[in-house]
Write a protein that binds this DNA or RNA. Structure first.
Lengths: 169, 169
DNA sequence: GTTATCTTACTCGGATATAACCTGTCCGAGTTCGATCGG
DNA sequence: CCGATCGAACTCGGACAGGTTATATCCGAGTAAGATAAC
């Protein structure tokens, strides 16, 4: 059982977007440079977050992604579900109905006891994830990291402007 | 995030072994026939459970697997860990330390806030799994299924004896 | 000076290769049961 | 009749391919900003 790498990337990006401000737009390329990640693949995860309504995407020059809501209104569960997809980790294949000792359909009206137990555990996991938000993660991170993110954002924005200015000369 | 199929198989086998009695030994082939599963691959999962001390294996004719302890002393977490392996679903790759906005080592003495949040959720999942046992699953399953398992066990044992007797003629 | 138009470069978005892991299979070492032979 | 020995078949255990999913990459459609030219 191995979670997609994109979950970690998406969470870090959401936290970074929260630090630099909800209304600020950042392109995939800049976020990829910040964490030294493959930009094209990171874009895939950010697209999934945009489809799920966690991020908002804008095209064209100065485009990119921004948070769709306040960081306190975005739960970790939303991010995980957006990237991992909706299906549960444990999938019951109803093997109780197959083979020599198969149970008749009349005994299978209630869900399989094993599937119920596994589902209960997964619900506890989801509940814990839904109680944490991007804002709560921001609170638990070092203050210096937040300041560093803002500085990085300003610096790379300046670079972008300078690049444009340099190209104009 | 997708859990190994072997977890479902292992849990069903443990429950079946609990129903037919802690001291009864059943071979992989018989268990595979009961659920219509590929015997050789099921064996792989049962081996993992034996290594983890959940099952006890015995070789030779009339050999196979049996529960190592009472069903009430085997938690679902043990079964899941034995087959899935020890590593967590979410693995922090410390991307906060890489890229342009990398945090210095002095800020990374505490674990990453994102990794902590994900770990907390995973601990809730594990806690729920450790509170459930093979015995509790047996309680929640239909009584008819338990009786059917015992009948199946007796029947296949008889078949095995008959087969041996038939081969002797 | 203002406004409308056009060009341009940048962005997202989805379609396309590659790699790792899970699934499935096979054969060999070891062991135990049963038959056999001798006492 | 009883016991030890031998043979044989059955079991687990780990080593070996195939399929599916996650990872990584590329290129095209669309768009907004900025420059340009006309008024």
């Amino acid at each position: 059982m191995r979670m997609n790498q994109g979950v970690e990337w998406g969470l870090h990006c959401c936290v970074a977007l929260g630090w630099i401000g909800q209304n600020e737009v950042v392109s995939t390329a800049r976020l990829a440079a910040k964490f030294d990640l493959p930009a094209a693949y990171l874009n895939k995860s950010l697209q999934a977050l945009a489809r799920a309504g966690v991020l908002v995407s804008s095209a064209g020059p100065r485009g990119g992604f921004r948070l769709a809501r306040a960081p306190s209104k975005i739960t970790l569960l939303e991010v995980v579900d957006a990237i991992e997809g909706p299906e549960a980790a444990f999938r019951c294949t109803e093997i109780r109905r197959t083979g020599d000792g198969a149970s008749p359909a009349s005994e299978c009206k209630k869900p399989c006891a094993i599937a119920s137990a596994m589902r209960q555990a997964e619900l506890a996991w989801r509940k814990e994830l839904s109680s944490q938000t991007i804002a709560s993660v921001m609170m638990n991170a070092p203050q210096a990291a937040a300041e560093r993110a803002v500085q990085w954002f300003e610096a790379t924005r300046a670079v972008a402007s300078n690049t444009a200015a340099a190209a104009a000369t």
